[in-house]
Amino acid sequence: MTNMFNRRHVLFAGAGALAASLAPAARATGAFPDKPLQVLIPTGEGGGVDQAARAFNRIWAKYLGANFEYSYFPGASGQVGYEVFISKRPADAYNILFGNIGPEMIMYATQKVKYKYPEDFVYLGSMDVDDSVIWVGSGSKFKTIQEMVDEGKKREITLSTSRLPHPSTIGALALAEATGMKVRMIPYGGGGPARSAAITGEVDGCATFLSSSLGLGDQARFLTVFNETNRAPELTNNAPPVNAALGTKIPPMSGQRAIAIHAKAVEAYPDRVKKLSDTFQQVFSDPDYKAVAEKAGTPWEFIQYGDAASCQKSAREFVELADRYRALLTATK
């Protein structure tokens, strides 16, 4: 497979030169970018990252001067997308990956992957910070997180989640560890089914990212937020931060949607990468971005630019967290 691809690219390059000679002169000026960027999304079409990326790119396209083409490679909690990106996409800065640092670094740490961070890829910048939450369906008897913890000392509480390698899962497990409650995470293989399970009462509650659950309205009652403050109190029936409610010391369990790029591209094309980073940052001060981001379902309070260094820090933190809870997150003992 790999061999075939390599050969293909060699030929591709040869014939590409021929085609370039036939193409209109404008193409040959070499200004980056002179063709659409290829966006790889390691989760499903229509998912949270997809929506956020499309909203973001609508504005980014203005500053970058290029359009975006999307492909989706979901599977194995994002591993498939990252493997494809690293092994099969050329490191030319035209190929970028839109992902979510928290869940995907936990996946990196807990699954047997063939790539290495940060040797093979780096995050260039992040576009929002989304907090983990626990919520219950409107028919649930739990009104506060304290009630759930109390009950959890008597019996095991079931919480739905889209997949085990996820910050909200670690949040719930850390909560259980800190309070002595018993909790069992039930992965549903997708955000939709996980939310549905909590609303229809198959499980006691749902542990997930905040923004994906905001559209549920009165069907969801938010119990707690895994961060120091609740940044969207009016949208989440003023659910208390977990540490404030229970006196615990659980670190923030956030997801950061971010773009990643091949580490080789950073070395080989520093000018291209600089253009990507600079224009990426410009989007945040564009007044139009607020409108499209909110249309895509992300509250403006969550939109927050993070540079490459902060992404790297966050990525490393999640690898450490995942290592601590490895036994509960993996099938290989």
Binding site: E45, G46, I199, L216, G217, K295
Partner: peptide
């Protein structure tokens, strides 16, 4: 409920949210 049952429904959800339509009981 506002939860897509399949992939096509998920894409419809994108379009609806983009147009500012809140799905679910509301």
């Amino acid at each position: 409920i506002g939860v897509p049952g399949g992939t096509t429904a998920a894409v419809m959800l994108i379009v609806m949210t983009y147009h500012g339509v809140q799905l679910g009981p509301r």
